[in-house]
């Protein structure tokens, strides 16, 4: 009986993973754009990017999710999954922008100076010298954000997306075993988060730049 129950809730896992796999990369691309605009854009663009980043981070994710969900599904015909995932992507983009901005600034002005000194244009310098180093610096806080997105995917439950939490709720109603139902959900999330963290740790280790201590 438990296995039936478990597999029922487990089926939501795929949706949860899918939501995360849509939101996270979308947020990365958008966040990178915002970060680059903040650092290298002109006075107007960098201001706009900064306002976007600060504004989006000053509002609870669930509120943003609701606003974006209604806006997205109001303007284009998207189902709850896509509207919710994209909305989540937009939410995380502001946090990722902040992370990337910090990483790029940590690379240090000297690297840009050295790149310009051999005749590289700003664009090439950012592409070949700054970003590759920034990526390594960004991995630990970014891993943290990845976990957060995975956990925040539970918020799309409120939009009616059939992910883990929503399956757990249905299981709870069907079996009258709420503790078991939500406990199972918690367990599955825990495994997902744990796995993601370990994988990203491994990636961080693989990507490190060799040095002698």
């Amino acid at each position: 009986m438990f296995s039936q129950f478990f597999s029922y809730v487990l089926q939501g896992t795929l949706t949860t993973v899918e939501v995360t796999l849509v939101a996270l990369p979308f947020g990365l691309v958008l966040g990178l754009l915002v970060a680059l605009l903040q650092i290298y854009g002109g006075p107007i663009l960098s201001r706009i990017a900064a306002i976007y980043s600060t504004g989006m981070r000053g509002v609870p994710p669930i509120v943003l999710l609701f606003i974006l969900f209604f806006v997205i599904s109001g303007s284009i015909s998207l189902d709850a999954f896509w509207a919710g995932s994209l909305a989540l992507g937009i939410v995380t983009s502001a946090y990722q922008a902040e992370i990337l901005r910090g990483a790029i600034l940590s690379v240090g002005a000297g690297q840009m100076v050295a790149a310009r000194a051999i005749g590289m244009s700003r664009l090439k310098a950012v592409q070949h010298i700054i970003l590759p180093q920034a990526v390594r610096l960004a991995i630990p806080p970014w891993s943290n954000e990845a976990s957060i997105v995975l956990k925040d995917s539970s918020l799309v439950y409120a939009l009616g997306v059939p992910e883990i939490l929503s399956r757990a709720q249905q299981a709870s109603a069907a079996t009258q075993q709420p503790f078991l139902a939500y406990g199972t959900a918690a367990l599955i999330y825990f495994v997902l988060v744990f796995t993601t963290n370990r994988l990203l740790d491994l990636l961080s280790h693989r990507m490190r730049i060799p040095s002698n201590p």
Partner: peptide, 18 residues
């Protein structure tokens, strides 16, 4: 283009770390 024709060596090397 100018910087292609003039080379510079810095006090703190500034090698590309990666």
């Amino acid at each position: 283009h100018v910087r292609e024709r003039i080379g510079m060596v810095f006090q703190n090397f500034l090698l590309f770390n990666h």
